[in-house]
Design a protein around this nucleic acid. Structure first.
Length: 419
DNA sequence: TGGCTATTTCA
DNA sequence: GAAATAGCC
């Protein structure tokens, strides 16, 4: 009699430690087929990103190695999951497919189509948690962080699972090749690298790094995005402000799950009426880091050159684009998605809407003005950050005057609100 | 997870 | 006259 077999569909949970779908499949079936579907829509789509694609390919290579060390392997196929997964299931006689649920509209739509195709083929789809700390779909919709946080803290937590000792796969696996990565940012992908980063990180250093742009924060965001590090496992090693930041990650995933239209529209619907009067020339100057504001230029060049930007610089550059250059937050969001290795629709969109004063967790407009000059004094006191990334910025004539543009923004937002 | 400006405080 | 503070947007 043929051994029982299940597919384990990896998406952005590219690890073997604390992996609920893998563990559930191994517990219930004699053999598993770990698979990643390289979907051309992801690599060549609207959010095409060279750095992020390279990081992903690093992750796949490392995951294959980890599975091989346990007697298994990773099947990498090209195509759409709704076609490839039923085909693989038929090929190996698999009767179930396990995967960790996700929140973006793209992922939700894709997973629905995959579930329909699997069911049609007589394969049972089984969703598990895995990408977030708590079950963010279980609570009522929140649009303010603090009450969400209180409820979220009380939610049950799943146990942190160890990596399986052995992974038994069919003997005739056609595993496919992993393309060679193109241009990388300043981080290598993979669970091994992610776990090293996590184990070396001391949350006590986070508060200082957060307020000084010349320092680095945890540098775990990309590993969290691709699931090289489990957010749930990281929670058990966290404390203080860092632990609270992890809650923001669950919050923004929760918000997008409950409000999928936020990827295209302001959460505060009336804020879609803002007339963005900014100039294309200014947008390009912002992208390339030649605005004449050193804090902005340093951040934008760090992003373009490394695929990462310090959190404080993200606030400053984003505020500048929207509140000083009067350019639609969605254009900034898209630019960040193109370069950030940690680019994550839920996080990026949530943060752009926050800084633009159009999203959840509303704060008065005046609380979201960042003066790039003052911010620089405060958050790069020794000038190290600018010296490293944009030493020539001081010689560029500022393309706009912050004080003047601030007033224009107040007026534009006022008109949108009808006040 | 701001900042501007007027005002007060204190060396 | 610099530095802290209050009130406001």
């Amino acid at each position: 009699m043929m051994a029982t077999t299940a597919l384990v569909w990896f998406r952005r949970d590219l690890r073997v430690h604390d992996h609920p779908p893998l563990r559930a499949a191994l517990d219930a079936f004699e053999r598993v087929v770990p698979v990643f579907v390289l979907d051309p829509r992801l690599l060549e789509g609207r959010f095409e990103s060279e750095y992020r694609a390279a990081f992903l390919l690093d992750c796949l290579k490392d995951l294959r190695k980890a599975l091989q060390e346990r007697g298994g392997n990773l099947v990498v196929v090209r195509g759409t999951p709704e076609q490839e997964l039923p085909r693989l299931a038929r090929e190996h006689g698999a009767t179930a497919t396990y995967f960790a649920s996700d929140v973006s509209p793209f992922a939700m739509g894709r997973d629905q189509r995959v579930e329909a195709a699997l069911t049609e083929a007589g394969v049972e789809p089984r969703r598990t948690p895995g990408n977030f700390i708590a079950d963010i779909g279980k609570v009522k919709p929140y649009s303010v962080f603090s009450p969400f946080w209180r409820a979220w803290r009380e939610l049950p937590r799943r146990d942190v699972l160890g990596a399986p000792r052995t992974v038994t796969v069919p003997s005739n696996l056609a595993v496919g090749t992993i393309p060679a990565p193109g241009k990388r940012g300043d981080q290598h992908g993979g669970e091994a690298a992610g776990r090293r980063q996590m184990l070396a990180f001391d949350p006590a250093t986070y508060d200082d790094a957060r307020v000084n742009m010349a320092l680095q924060t945890s540098r775990l965001s990309a590993y969290l995005h691709f699931g090289c590090v489990s957010a749930r496992e990281l929670e058990t090693r966290s404390s203080g402000k860092f632990a609270r930041q992890l809650a923001w990650r669950d919050f923004y995933a929760h918000v997008l799950l409950k409000h999928p239209r936020n990827t295209r529209h302001a959460h505060q619907a009336e804020m879609d009426a803002i007339e963005w009067e900014g100039e294309d020339e200014h947008f390009h100057a912002w992208c390339e880091g030649r605005t004449g504001y050193p804090a902005v230029d340093a951040g934008m060049r760090q992003l373009a050159q490394t695929g990462w930007m310090h959190n404080r610089a993200r606030l400053i550059t984003a505020s500048f684009l929207v509140k000083d250059l009067h350019i639609d937050w969605r254009r900034g969001e898209q630019h960040f998605m193109r370069y950030l290795i940690d680019g994550d629709v839920a996080q990026n969109n949530g943060n752009w809407q926050w800084i633009s004063s159009v999203g959840v967790d509303p704060a008065p407009l005046y609380r979201r003005f960042y003066n790039p000059t003052l911010q620089l004094q405060r958050h790069d006191p020794d000038g190290d950050y600018v010296a490293r990334w944009a030493p020539d910025s001081q010689t560029i004539t500022p393309i706009v005057d912050h004080a003047v543009e601030r007033k224009r923004t107040m007026e534009a937002y006022g008109r949108a609100r009808g006040t």
